[in-house]
Computed example of a mutant assay.
Amino acid sequence: MHELAPITARSYTLAHLGASFLSLLSFFWRWKETRREGAGQLYSVFKSSNVDNYPEGYPQLAAFMNSDESFAIFRKFGQTNCRVMIHLQSEIAALEKELEELDRSDARDGSSTSYRLVSTEHRTGWDTRQKDILKQLEEKLPVYYDLMLKDKQLRAIGPPLKRDHRSVFHWIEWKKPIAKGEDDWILHKDDLVTLANIDHFESSLITPWSRLLFGSSKHGVNEKDLVVTYFSQMRVTGAAKLFSVLVAVAILIIPISLFLWVPLSRGWTSATVIISVLVFSTMLSLSTNIKVRDILLGSAAYCAVLATFLGNLQSGSGSTPSNPR
């Protein structure tokens, strides 16, 4: 009887602590639900883009193309822009030739217009041919340069991914939002640019089987429609970063582990270094939009790390402590 009292008191204490913990957990849960309901009422005024809420036609097409960054695809009219630039180039070249002939004419002995070669002064009644040519060049050259620079910027943007282009094409073919003939811009697959920032390594992770991992539902898009599949950019980016970290660690740890724990001859050590550098350079070039110069610099830095480790490893294994006498 004397031994049961401590056990009973201990059981009562544990039960009391358990009940207190459950009460605290219940209170925290009710507080969280109350806060969530309050936040839901507060944020209910936020507006989200619902594709189906827009009128059919150009408004709905614009809403769909804005529903995902990858769907912002437009024509660049590359051939037409080149045509305009070629015409301007020919007109400017003709004016340039006419100006040179006028200068040679002014440079002849006894020419009454030789003053135009050494002075910009012009008075009423003087010949205006030079002024007219310079005025036309002043108007055409800025237009020509502006078209050239804009075309260069468009070409730097790059084309859309085949998957994104076909998604927009399928949606247009399925919905037919605009008049026939006005939607054929999507057919010019070699003349399209995308406004999305494409990461080719992340894009390589998106495959038909990855829909379960990265699939995302968009507000305003019927999930029963299989015409377009949305992917969560946050999940794809997270998976790409995780894979990159694992590969980077593996490329550095595997050769070092082999050097530490596996007795290798000089030939196998050299082969391990060469293979590791090749794998590192290949992964670096495939996973990033990197220049050849940067690949060389990165490979040299990786070689330096392996060489430093090997040097320290050999110097450590070659030194033996002296035996005191």
Rank of each mutant, 00 (worst) to 15 (best):
L4K: 07
P6H: 04
R10H: 09
T13W: 02
T13L: 06
L17W: 07
G18T: 06
L22W: 04
F27P: 01
K32V: 13
K32C: 11
T34V: 11
T34G: 14
R36V: 08
Y43G: 03
V45D: 03
N50D: 10
N50F: 08
D52I: 08
F64H: 03
F71R: 00
F71A: 01
Q79F: 05
C82Q: 14
C82Y: 11
R83I: 11
I92L: 11
I92P: 02
A94F: 06
E101M: 11
S105L: 12
S111K: 07
W126Y: 03
D127L: 12
T128S: 14
I133A: 04
Q136H: 04
K140N: 04
K140V: 02
M148V: 07
L149W: 07
L149C: 06
K150W: 00
D151V: 01
Q153R: 10
A156N: 09
D164H: 04
H170E: 12
I172N: 00
P177K: 02
K180P: 04
E182V: 05
H188R: 11
D191K: 04
D191T: 07
L195W: 06
D199W: 02
T207M: 09
L212A: 15
G220I: 05
E223Y: 01
K224C: 11
M234S: 09
R235K: 15
T237D: 07
A240M: 04
S244D: 10
L246C: 12
V249L: 11
V249Y: 05
W261G: 01
L264E: 04
L264V: 05
S270L: 14
S270H: 11
V273T: 10
V273G: 01
I274G: 01
S287Q: 14
S287M: 14
I290G: 00
A301P: 00
L306P: 08
A307W: 10
A307C: 13
L313D: 12
L313Q: 11
Q314A: 14
Q314C: 10
Q314P: 00
G316T: 15
P321F: 10
